[in-house]
Design a protein around this nucleic acid. Structure first.
Lengths: 112, 112
DNA sequence: CGTAGATATCGATGATTGTCGATATGTGGC
DNA sequence: GCCACATATCGACAATCATCGATATCTACG
């Protein structure tokens, strides 16, 4: 079961104690989010027109090397928070909105 | 402005691009959450009767040394996710539910 | 006071991580 | 085929982190 699948199936944090197994599957998701650059990347992609953004746009938004941005995008993609689509020479990312909202619900939202 | 205050004042991730400053204030909150032990600790405290838990109970729930649990509780306390109260020899922690729900809203809320 | 028990702090250590420059891979145009 | 360009991977390095044992601090009770 992937982190993203796990987060979709659980009652909120405050309702029942998390098992060790579930906690260990969810933590990587939060770890992926727990970096200022990745937070901004996710936010940039999410708020971009058409809900997708080209890597070329993202690179320009940071004072970081291209490999570094690529690395952060990979981290977000691997945990399932960003979907990846290659069109020609360019790569477009879009957020997995369901995963993000499931994660939000797990943390603190009042009702699903 | 503390991480917890920051998280309460922002529009959701997907609505507007996060500024560098805001992202850097929110990331520590997520970093505090992004550990399986701390996730379980938070969940244990949150789902405990009366919404609070004594450290002595928490220690027993893990196969980790007492200093290690103490360290994790400190991390959660320092970012404002856990409140701390000493009563006699014992220390009780309770979750800052508002902070947790603000964080959830920041991540995944559907509409403002 | 002195002792016992609960919790926190300290210092060390192995593992993980963010970043970079160099380089590889893939794509479209000539 | 070759070149320019967009993106990814690799290897290295400094910084951060989770964990531990040892020890300090605090509190209640004789």
């Amino acid at each position: 079961m992937t982190p993203v699948e796990t987060v979709a199936c659980c009652s909120p944090l405050s309702q029942d104690p998390l098992s060790r197994e579930v906690a260990e599957r969810i933590a990587p998701l939060l770890k992926a989010l727990a970096d200022p650059v990745r937070l901004r990347l996710l936010s940039l992609v999410a708020s971009h027109a058409d809900g997708e953004a080209c890597v070329c746009d993202l690179n320009d938004a940071f004072d970081l090397s291209q490999p570094t941005i690529s690395h952060h995008l990979k981290v977000l993609h691997e945990v399932g928070l960003l979907d990846r689509e290659k069109r020609g020479v360019w790569v477009y990312y879009r957020v997995n909105a369901a995963a993000l909202s499931d994660l939000g619900a797990l943390l603190g939202r009042v009702a699903g």
